[in-house]
Design a protein around this nucleic acid. Structure first.
Lengths: 219, 219, 219, 219
DNA sequence: CATGAATGAGCGTTCATTCAT
DNA sequence: AATGAATGAACGCTCATTCAT
């Protein structure tokens, strides 16, 4: 565990550091997703097989780690938006994006929080955010031109959509892991122009599940 | 704060205790609303100008305080549901209820959590929850019979609706205190049968507001 | 609950105070005996049906209450010693005293502590203590003259005897309420001159009981 | 306190942790011995010159610390029992064991409690307890066969013996540090078959010492 | 560099004691 | 005089963060 690398270099490479950084991000993503942002850095470090100190060497503090995670996750959204750009129609693209974003958010307990913690200062993050915003503006604009989405929808409604779906997903995670689909559909129907409506997927929750969901929601 | 009661009774009634209880509940509601359920009882006690012990004299533990808050808030919902019962039409009643519930929830950061039924499944709370559930089942059933709400809507969708609106309200509280109205309308449009659709109230959020919203959301 | 007494006197009599004092002492004796000295004054006051303030009016603090209890209990010992004085023989008297003292101590969890807390300043308590000491010196001296107790026994060994039996009684109270008898006999046999020996009463404890006893002992 | 190890190894081994563990155990043993198990971990940590967190890093909770202390102390008893096994006679062995156990217990205020097996019924502790029990059963059985101890004595009487001696030792610690010897002899005489009797070692306590003893006993 | 031991402020909670009513 | 509401120091314990090794 202390010896030189297999590649023959005695001094630890910059690559080691990067490897550790990725490892920590991956583990943190998993642990935060499973247990919420309340998980301790000690746990994450332990589960990654490194010392806490190492985590602090890579990330100034817990918030910085969350921020970094945010950027990682953000890439997924950008990727989804790019995919949506080339969809047969803007409406289909937008719907696919929203379903994808909701799904990405769903299995990720506490990641509304991660996506949220966005981190004020990161220039990169800002650029990403803006880029995504523009992609969505474009997508929505085209969909509106097609008449496949209501005219008063805005790109900034998308993060709110994710906030909403995230709240449901976090709450129902555990008793009804697919419940987010129902509410995604419900909101999507609200986004759609009149008359384009899908039946809600999945059955409604029973009382106990609702109770559980709301209990769990705070995270 | 020390003056005689409104009813003009000068008798030094043991109501000082009740006054304190109310004071604590009010302060707790405010502090939880502002800072989320993570606020400490020490803070609440301090802000109420009493010792921690006083809080613990009235409420067995933090959960009990949250639970008490819950009951208070729940009464509002029950009252709203009763009012909805006598609305001209079930559809109007349901919409009025949802707007009222959303409004009650808005501005109450961390009260999604309180409403969640934080604390033990108190018998009273359970009964209240069930009663409200039945009221809503009836209301929704009648609205569906009227054709004024989609047929696959269920009573248990209502708490999820509040979870969603709560997430938005908590996030935008501070930068766009009325933003919840936009998303309430959006979801309500999703609830409506095709073709019954209102324009979204209020303008969309700007990027900065979205950023702020997501920053704040975790609580 | 606030009106004048039945006996026609409008001002509360000194007798009320005394009645309360006795009531508190009785309840405190019972509660301390059942739950150890760790019991709270609030509990005692509540169980006595008075306010804590009343307890504090009668007894400067918790220690003072314990001290007062001590005097009460001490009276029992003095009474036992008096009875021993008139026994057919000093040896029989001494044994009867010790059995009585052990029994008094046994059902009284935490009363080793009460008997102990003896309170430094009480002139009365000091006098009682000395009186008992002299009674025991006399009793033991006569028993030694009879040859029915070892010659090197001293009056001051008696409190230590009670300390020892108390430790056992407190520990076994709950799993083997009569175990103290076994150890009383064992020690009494040690007190006896050679050849005067009784079989130990009761069976030995099993391992689980011992475990429980030692767990509980701290009080 | 900072110098190299006795074995001459200068390598900066991670033994600083182990050193702290030992330090904490030592301080805890001393503080518990002096002030009883009621001593706070904050006090212990402070007195050891470490933060509370450090104590909690090594021991899951207060019980775990007490349990660890228990295992340490228990080893002494097992060692004594092993030594007793090879004594010239079982009777001598048993007496030596009891004197040793009493001495180990004396001066260790609150360690009756520690020895009690404070904390969970750890598997190791249980095994140790049982092993000692069997050793004592054997020893007592052989002593009884020799006729050097009363026939109705049981292995489970030994912990009760320690409870009794502990109560005396805790009480007299401070005013008469050797008083436990007197009562050990007294009880040992009770254990002996008739006619085998030693004079009590040490003078009886004076009244003030008894008073002090009982004051201190509660812990 | 990496490690993980150490830190200590802070949390929820209890209870002896005080004091307004 | 009696009440019980109020107090707040203290406890056991957690965890983000620092720093010696």
């Amino acid at each position: 565990m202390r010896g030189p690398d297999a590649d023959g270099c005695a001094r630890p490479l910059r690559a080691d550091a990067e490897r550790n950084r990725r490892l920590i991000l991956d583990v943190a993503a998993r642990v935060f997703a499973e247990r919420g942002l309340g998980a301790t850095l000690n746990d994450i470090a332990h589960e990654a097989g490194v010392g806490v100190g190492t985590v602090y060497r890579r990330f100034a503090d817990k918030d910085a780690l969350v921020e970094a995670l945010f950027e990682t996750k953000f890439a997924t959204l950008v990727w989804l938006a790019r995919a949506a750009e080339v969809a047969p129609s803007a409406g289909e693209g937008l719907r696919a994006f929203l379903w994808g974003a909701a799904e990405a958010r769903a299995g990720d307990r506490g990641l509304a929080q991660v996506l949220a913690g966005g981190g004020a200062p990161g220039a990169e993050a800002s650029r990403n955010r803006e880029m995504l915003h523009h992609l969505l503006e474009d997508l929505i604009g085209r969909a509106q031109a097609e008449g496949s989405v209501r005219g008063d929808l805005a790109a900034s409604d998308v993060p709110m959509f994710m906030l909403m779906i995230g709240a449901v997903a976090d709450g129902t995670h555990g008793v009804a892991p697919d419940a987010w689909r129902r509410y995604t559909q419900l909101v999507l129907d609200g986004l759609a122009p009149p008359a384009a409506r899908e039946p809600l997927p999945g059955p409604p929750l029973d009382l106990a599940a609702v109770f559980h969901a709301m209990q769990d929601a705070p995270a």
